[in-house]
């Protein structure tokens, strides 16, 4: 068990392309941190830099008290779960789990004990003598986790481990990973592009964009007080309404702001509301419905209970405290 510290970490490829810049994160011992962002935001590169699979060109990565910038992946005391699992196809599940321990000269009895224990935790005991190709996607995913667990490493690194599973299994495995991590209390760094997965799993999440950190915080902090226009648009489903402040001059504080944001659930239908809203489409979700429309020519979405009556033209009101204002130049939040 150990903390992980990233200090002004950056990555510039030999060709001069910058993938990651000036990232600083403190991960406490036992914490589960999720790196989230759109594809190409540098989250996987960052994870692979912590793993030692990519060189670190700027800054410092520490695992525990040790600077690991030049340490081989095998000597960093980390374990990694890959998106495509990367199980060794010619080895049985047992051999897959044992391979890393064997390479480290772990005594045979100890290997057996740890493999059996991991198999027990992950309920893969019946498959131990099968080859990976004889397993289902979910089972392979468990084996990949098992390979990380048996090592009893200082940290787990997850690289989009659920994206090869179907939607239903993904939700189930998400919960299992969370429970497992709480039980083992192993410091974990988890990469995903799915903001819902990020919110549900993370103790804290790190939103990345263009290789830089946009915001670090708990799911609620990031949801309630997005630090930038990008975070506001990326976190939350349905997405926050982001309106050009110039189009809504009568809204308070809009003088300094470039963008004003308000979440769909923070807009209420009232007969005398200040915003005129004409409905263009309705999406039924079951418990509620999403109502899309136009307000002063800008696209806007609101959520309504599924039993609410709708008309083509409605008026909307909001609580001023629920408005998010973002600076015209920097896109950062204005408080």
């Amino acid at each position: 068990m150990a903390s992980i510290t990233l200090e002004n970490v950056g990555k510039v490829y030999p060709g001069g392309t910058r993938a990651v810049g000036d990232v600083s994160i403190d991960i406490a011992d036992g914490e589960l941190i999720v790196l989230v962002g759109p594809s190409g935001c540098g989250k996987s590169t960052l994870l692979r830099m912590v793993a030692g699979l990519e060189s670190i060109t700027e800054g410092e990565v520490r695992i525990g008290d040790r600077i690991v910038n030049r340490v081989e992946p095998a000597d960093r005391d980390i374990a990694m779960v890959f998106q495509n699992y990367a199980l060794y196809p010619h080895m049985s599940v047992r051999q897959n789990l044992a391979y890393g321990l064997k390479n480290r000269g772990t005594p045979r009895s100890e290997i057996k004990r740890r493999v059996d224990e991991a198999a027990e935790i992950l309920q893969i005991g019946p498959f131990l003598d099968r080859k990976p190709r004889a397993l289902s996607g979910g089972q392979r995913q468990r084996v990949a986790m098992g390979r990380a667990i048996v090592r009893e490493p200082a940290a787990f690194l997850f690289d989009e481990p659920l994206s090869n599973l179907d939607a239903k299994l993904r939700v189930a495995m998400r919960l299992e990973i969370k429970q497992l991590q709480k039980r083992l209390r192993t410091t974990s760094l988890y990469v995903t592009h799915d903001q819902l997965e990020a919110m549900t799993l993370a103790d804290r999440l790190v939103v990345l964009n263009g290789g830089r950190v946009e915001q670090i915080g708990t799911a609620l902090e990031v949801y309630r007080r997005p630090a930038s226009v990008f975070v506001a648009g990326f976190i939350g489903s349905p997405a926050m309404n982001l309106l050009d402040a110039r189009a809504l001059p009568h809204l308070p504080g809009s003088a300094h702001a470039g963008t004003i944001g308000i979440r769909p659930e923070d807009l209420t239908v009232t007969p005398d509301g200040p915003i005129e809203f004409s409905v263009t489409a309705v999406e039924e979700l079951g418990a509620q419905r999403l109502v899309h429309g136009l307000a002063n020519g800008e696209a806007m979405t609101i959520t309504q209970p599924s039993d609410a009556t709708l008309s083509d033209n409605m008026r909307l009101s909001f609580d001023r405290g629920n408005l998010h204002l973002f600076n015209r130049e920097t896109g950062r939040r204005i408080d």
Binding site: A51, G52, L53, E72, P73, A74, I78, A79, M80, F82, Q83, N84, Y85, A86, L87, Y88, Y99, G100, N103, R104, R147
Partner: peptide, 21 residues
């Protein structure tokens, strides 16, 4: 897949071990 060699490296296999195993 690239991940195979990466997994092996994390599992502590050097180049010749990766080649053989």
């Amino acid at each position: 897949p690239d991940e195979l060699v990466e997994a092996a490296r994390i599992d502590g296999a050097g180049p010749m071990k990766f080649f053989r195993d």
